[in-house]
Design a protein around this nucleic acid. Structure first.
Length: 659
DNA sequence: GCGATCAGCT
DNA sequence: CACAGCTGATCGC
């Protein structure tokens, strides 16, 4: 939850995502997206009165956010004061003090944030420097490098301060499976269930908030089944969403809600009340999207976990993972960073310690030579529908904005909101146990001269080969190490999957003993890249940067997602389930399983499952030399066995984490 | 009666 | 397992 106070220190006349207290005096308001914790005070009488007396005060947001906001009658009084700004279109705004006539100009640019429909980040430019307020965001690695307007010419902009979504800024959320992987897992589960019969239905147990729409649209698109929701009038002007949702309860996918929906579900009833069709009782499973639940317990490849006879958890996140945050921030490399959110279980000073190494002057002090900031990775592809905007953008790019210059003697300021930097001074006490991993997260940079696995393989995939030529820390594309395992057929794939199993199943049995549903069959779904997804619902009419859907597509990935039965505590119960379909679904789901687990792979799994997300380097292990690595890669690529050359699977992980 | 705040519950 | 909400109780205006 956002604890941002509303103001950035560089531009105190604007208020963002907060509308109470001191924000009542702002000269302009900004709303990044339509979640309640970013709308505090927005419909309060105090602000309403302010609006009536100050005729020049406006609220700026994206067109989709405006649409969603005005669907609720409680915000109707804003109607004539909301200015919808197009995405990625720099706009000049005059901040006028109506009593003194004092005026200050500021330029604002909306950048897509990938958090929920209409969500944006705000890039402010003015006489006090460039400031980026991220709102809430989920951006994949390398996404910042593809945002043209974060750059000036071919270089990244000189950004003074970033006000950052730090929801998952915690090493325990180091990796969260990508949107596509999560979507894939859910898709295959829903597909498997709904195809059993027309009486097999799925309840998506989603929270009451915007952000699940792309899940609904993709399921509907892929399966041809519309999603039942309570309300859809907010999408009345968004045909790309509207088409895939319905208020007709006669459908196999439900995302409807009821105050006591859990109680309903236990009584084999959907939240909308439906329990049978034509007299035939329904077979309902629930899928609960969660991130935190996964963050603390799973590894990279488990996207779906069965938690009960007919209950599943699906990994799903609106917010960037720790590594995505690090990638984003280290690419921007601002002078200052301010966390907007306190991750659960972390203190502010701990978050700050994690972020500080990614800021500019810290890096300058640590490295002997000045490391230039990034360059634009790929020129933004202009949408055909992008009429008029490209010319605007061209005009904008012709202007000479302050080019990136060597910063003066800036000191790193990583401050808490409203505090006087007291927390910025290093408390010499004990650090969070994982803090150091944040600092060493950049360790790959000194090894830039080493051959890189992904670069090596990309040589064969010429379609995107130009993309990885620069040497950014963020250049690990679309999942880096993960794609190493899921794409290469054979040894490493099954090794990786089975490596997840032991600790996973251990954990599950713990959960089982804590009173979860009785049948604790655990299902791990390994994700496969499948790029049939459309994220257009995020920013209606807005052009998009190269989001995940425009990345490389795997060649020859024809088989559907692999499922792996990990643990079947009570196989007897499965027989009893036969009537409701649980047994059938196992047949459908688990076509790929035990055959991939050879005895020697089983032996290795323990060493690999010791840490949650990354396998740390063994302290005294020596790094392979470049020529050695090169030959290893060549052999791996050719499918040759390398095990007899002392390269255990553990070392393969190390190489993977290097690249 | 409304809003703000908090506890409790997903 | 708490992502983002809702409901209900209480208090003050």
């Amino acid at each position: 939850m956002s604890r941002f106070g509303g103001r950035v220190r560089e531009y105190p006349w604007v208020s963002i995502d907060r509308f109470d207290h001191h924000n009542l005096r702002a000269r302009a308001y900004f709303l990044s997206h339509c979640h309640k914790d970013h709308m505090r005070g927005l419909r309060a009488p105090a602000l309403r009165r302010r609006l009536e007396c100050s005729l020049k005060v406006n609220l700026y947001c994206s067109p989709v956010t405006k649409e969603l906001l005005l669907t609720s009658s409680k915000y109707k009084f804003w109607e004539n004061r909301i200015v919808a700004l197009e995405i990625e279109t720099p706009t000049q705004i005059s901040l006028v003090d109506e009593t003194s006539g004092e005026k200050e100009d500021i330029e604002v640019t909306l950048l897509p944030a990938g958090h929920c429909p209409g969500s944006v980040m705000f890039l402010f430019q003015g006489e006090n420097g460039t400031v980026l307020y991220t709102g809430d965001f989920r951006l994949a690695k390398g996404e910042a490098a593809r945002m043209e307007l974060l750059h000036s010419g071919t270089r990244v902009r000189d950004i003074q301060s970033v006000y950052l979504d730090t929801t998952f800024c915690d090493p325990k959320f180091h990796h969260i499976p990508s949107r596509e992987e999560c979507l894939n897992g859910i898709l295959e589960l829903v597909r498997s269930w709904t195809m059993l019969s027309r009486y097999h239905v799925v309840w998506l147990n989603c929270k009451a908030a915007y952000g699940y729409e792309y899940l609904f649209t993709n399921l509907s698109e892929e399966l041809g089944i519309k999603v039942h929701v309570n309300k859809l009038d907010m999408f009345k002007n968004m045909p790309e969403i509207l088409y895939h949702v319905t208020t007709d309860r006669n459908t196999q996918i439900h995302a409807c809600r009821h105050p006591r929906d859990d109680y309903y579900f236990r009584g084999n009833r959907l939240p909308c009340g439906v329990t049978s069709q034509n007299g035939t009782p329904l077979h309902i499973i629930s899928i609960k999207p969660s991130t935190m639940w996964f963050g603390e317990r799973t590894k990279k490849t488990s996207v779906i976990v069965r938690t009960g006879e007919s209950s599943y958890r699906a990994c799903f996140s609106f917010h960037s993972s720790y590594s995505e945050i690090k990638d984003f921030l280290s690419y921007i490399c601002p002078v200052n960073v301010y966390p907007n959110v306190l991750p659960v279980g972390l203190r502010e000073d701990q978050v700050i310690e994690l972020l500080k190494p990614l800021c500019r002057s810290y890096r300058r002090n640590m490295e002997p030579k000045y490391k230039p900031l990034g360059t634009l990775k790929r020129v933004h592809k202009t949408d055909l529908s992008d009429t008029g905007k490209s010319s605007l953008r061209a005009k904008f790019c012709d202007q000479t904005f302050h080019e990136l210059s060597e910063p003066e003697e800036n000191t790193v300021e990583v401050l808490s909101h409203g505090s006087d930097a007291t927390s910025a001074s290093n408390s010499s006490g004990k650090k969070h146990s994982d803090l150091t991993s944040g600092v060493t997260g950049d360790q790959q940079e000194p090894n830039a001269h080493l051959p890189r696995w992904d670069a090596f393989f990309k040589c064969n995939r010429t379609d995107e080969s130009s993309e990885n030529e620069d040497n950014f820390p963020s250049s690990a594309d679309a999942g880096g190490s993960q794609s190493l395992f899921s794409d290469s057929e054979g040894v490493s794939d099954s090794t990786h999957i089975s490596s997840q199993n032991s600790s996973q199943s251990t954990h599950i049995s713990e959960q089982g003993s804590q009173g979860w549903d009785s049948q604790m069959d655990t299902v791990l779904i390994t994700s496969q890249e499948r790029n049939a997804f459309d994220f257009s619902c995020f920013n209606k009419g807005g052009s998009r940067t190269g989001t995940e859907n425009s990345r490389w597509k795997p060649v020859g990935q024809n088989r559907s997602s692999a499922y792996d039965v990990v643990h079947d505590l009570k196989s007897k119960d499965c027989e009893e389930d036969a009537e409701t379909g649980s047994a059938q679904i196992q047949d459908v789901l688990f076509e790929v399983s035990d055959s991939s687990r050879t005895p020697d792979l089983e032996l290795k799994k323990d060493s690999q499952s010791s840490s949650d997300f990354e396998i740390p380097l063994t302290p005294d292990a020596e790094l392979p030399q470049p020529d050695k690595l090169r030959s290893l890669y060549r052999k791996l690529a050719a499918g040759e066995n390398i095990l007899n050359e002392k390269i255990s699977s553990e070392n393969r992980f190390k190489m993977c984490s290097l690249s």
